[in-house]
């Protein structure tokens, strides 16, 4: 099978552009997911869970750093510039991922919602599991290698969210109502998550992402199976703004302002 190295892609403008379309989505999803997870740090409902969830958020940022690192090697600029300085319209993360954990600012009086946090993270993890499994067969070698490594942690993240979903579904009426409510709200935002955007078929035919249709199908099947097992309503995912096309909500601008606040003081300085 043909395998592309960094040089093979960096020196071919068409491949380079196409690989980047996919990498922006992966990197931006994980950066924003990690950012939302980090907002919980020190504040999670149970101290042992605080530590456990802390690793998950950290690993999301670590995965984003791996993807931005590939983009850096493809000549798009430094990973830190890419993470901190790109504008809202350049971002390709799903709008589901950029939504806040709940009302309130992380420094003042956040009213973060655990059920929403878990359901949203669960959907992210199912999507990434499906996508990364396909990407292990990508023609672009560094991406395939990264997918392989990241998948191992993804399985663990997904198992963690699934455990919480089952726990909330089965405990009592209160936790179940909260889970159902979060599940319903997630469908309003989840539409662009399992969408590879305008370059979807080009990504497939180039071999960058093999089997796009079956990735999307696996994702929907796994979510439907969870709904069936837990007795949740079928999730009818809506697309409002489509993050894969650079359409975003107010929440993303606020997140970017925060995550780049220090770096923007002087992007050329050594921090």
């Amino acid at each position: 099978m043909e395998r592309w190295t960094i040089e093979d892609v960096a020196q071919n403008p068409e491949r380079r552009q196409l690989a980047a379309e996919l990498l922006w989505q992966l990197a931006d999803d994980d950066l924003l997911m990690g950012f939302r997870d980090q907002e919980w740090l020190g504040l999670a409902p149970h101290i042992e869970e605080d530590v456990a969830f802390g690793s998950i958020g950290q690993e999301e940022i670590g995965h984003a750093a791996l993807y931005f690192g590939i983009l850096e090697r493809l000549g798009f600029g430094t990973a830190d510039d890419l993470a901190s300085l790109r504008s809202v319209s350049e971002r390709r993360n799903s709008v589901l991922i950029e939504q806040p954990n709940g009302p309130g600012h992380y420094l003042e009086s956040p009213r973060y919602e655990w059920a929403w946090t878990i359901v949203r993270h669960y959907l992210h993890d199912v999507w990434e599991m499906a996508l990364l499994t396909a990407l292990t067969g990508s023609v672009f070698e560094p991406l395939g290698d990264a997918a392989e490594k990241i998948l191992r942690e993804k399985r663990y993240h997904l198992a963690h969210q699934e455990l919480w979903m089952r726990t909330m579904a089965g405990h009592d009426a209160d936790s179940r109502v909260r889970l159902e409510d979060a599940w319903r709200r997630a469908q309003d935002w989840a539409g662009d998550l399992a969408d590879l955007g305008p370059y979807s078929s080009a990504l497939e035919s180039a071999g960058l992402c093999p089997g796009v249709d079956s990735v999307v199908r696996h994702y929907h099947e796994r979510v439907a199976e969870m709904a069936r097992v837990l007795g949740l309503p079928e999730m009818r995912m809506q697309t409002r703004e489509n993050g894969r096309r650079g359409e975003h909500t107010e929440a993303l601008q606020q997140a970017l302002d925060t995550l780049s606040e220090v770096y923007r003081l002087d992007p050329t300085a050594n921090w």
């Binding site: 802390g54 950290q58 830190d80 995550l259 606040e261 220090v262």
Partner: peptide
Amino acid sequence: EWVPRAPTLYRKLAIT
């Protein structure tokens, strides 16, 4: 308070 605002990806990871 500085975790989400840490300047670089590396610092974000380390401070988390």
